[in-house]
Design a protein around this nucleic acid. Sequence first.
DNA 1: CCGAAAAGAGAGCACTGCTCTTGTGCGAGA
DNA 2: TCTCGCACAAGAGCAGTGCTCTCTTTTCGG
Lengths: 230, 230
Amino acid sequence: MSTAQGARARARIEVTAAIKDAARRQLAAEGAAKLSLRAVARELGMVSSALYRYFPSRDDLLTALIIDAYDSLGEAAETAHAKAAATDHVRRWTTVCEAVRAWALAHPHEYSLIYGSPVPGYAAPETTVPAAARVGLLLIGIVRDAARDPGLAGLPLPAELRPEGERMVRDLAPDLPPGAAVALVAAWAQLFGLVGFELFGQFHRVVEDREAFFRHAAARLARDVGLVHR
Amino acid sequence: MSTAQGARARARIEVTAAIKDAARRQLAAEGAAKLSLRAVARELGMVSSALYRYFPSRDDLLTALIIDAYDSLGEAAETAHAKAAATDHVRRWTTVCEAVRAWALAHPHEYSLIYGSPVPGYAAPETTVPAAARVGLLLIGIVRDAARDPGLAGLPLPAELRPEGERMVRDLAPDLPPGAAVALVAAWAQLFGLVGFELFGQFHRVVEDREAFFRHAAARLARDVGLVHR
DNA sequence: CCGAAAAGAGAGCACTGCTCTTGTGCGAGA
DNA sequence: TCTCGCACAAGAGCAGTGCTCTCTTTTCGG
């Protein structure tokens, strides 16, 4: 059986978790670039080489943290979303947007890790894809519900983008009008543009009341994906 | 006089330029995290310590590269913009957007440096501000011209954002309607969200025809800031 | 119970940013 | 024109990094 593990296996997952915890602490404190395997090992009272029994390289540890970060963000978004009235699609949308922003402000270095520039020569492995998709799926669900309800304004789609929109609908967002699918992807990217600019300091001396500014921008994004009140 | 420098001063600026060139090559090849002072020194046939006569630290070298990158992007945008008809504000807008995207795709690591996550514990010094503002100023100019022309649709601004909008107009975009100023800043951030998502791989298996997708999104951004054809 | 596998410890390699000390050649002032 | 000072270069060295290798200890399964 897999539940009744020996002490060995149990210790392994405990140590693995401890390593990730320590690494996450360092990440939060200093950022990804200063995350050091040796420092993590020191904090845990082990020697650095021992750590390689758990993560074959620094990049693998980073990958684990990336997946966790995606999951944490996804869960934060889903939790917030669950509290919004299921009938008000605009409110659902803005709630998710604000949850993303709040999570980013609370976990800046983790946000950088997943939505900032990809680290060194590092290419995110396929493993991260499911976790990365969570927020996107949430947004798709909102727009889909609105399309059914129906509280979705018609969205124009130029002819040259029609194939692309239909492919999106087929591959990732069934039951969505192609125009909404394209608009949704754009809004999704734009949402993270807003968050990233605020977090990375581009709004320095440009936007002061960032809370209100973001709320307004998120509401406009809702309109851009065709969501309308009621 | 400042033009007739001695050989010494001339050598200094030449060496400084050579260091930046070599560093830029490494940056383009491997990314900011792998940019190494020692490797730069090796490439130039000097010893690593000699390099500190020109840049007091690795971060200072990076800062110089950041400023150059902002300038390069700004110049690319301005050059493209100059070729667009001065009367078609939508076209001017999309031209600048596409120039930004093209520059980013051509210089991914430099783009990461300026619009990705800020490196280590590094906070961009004030020196970078003027260079960083170039693209923004360009966009402000377009919207301002449109507001005069008049080819600017009215933009609603909720009461809670009115002070913010008025401050923006006062501090950075005189002669703009407050609603347009707020919308412009949002569109500016959203533009870089689109570019960043494409560049950093978030569109993997999501957007295929990225050229067309971006063109469409940029046109919608133009509409969002109130630009209308003719 | 005992052999295999897993885990930890330690030394070591090649690399990094950065500092300090020691020459050396250019150039501006007397 | 000479000379003193300073900018520059070179080298050694320190503390830190990721990662590998070897050796010992611990633990588990047949």
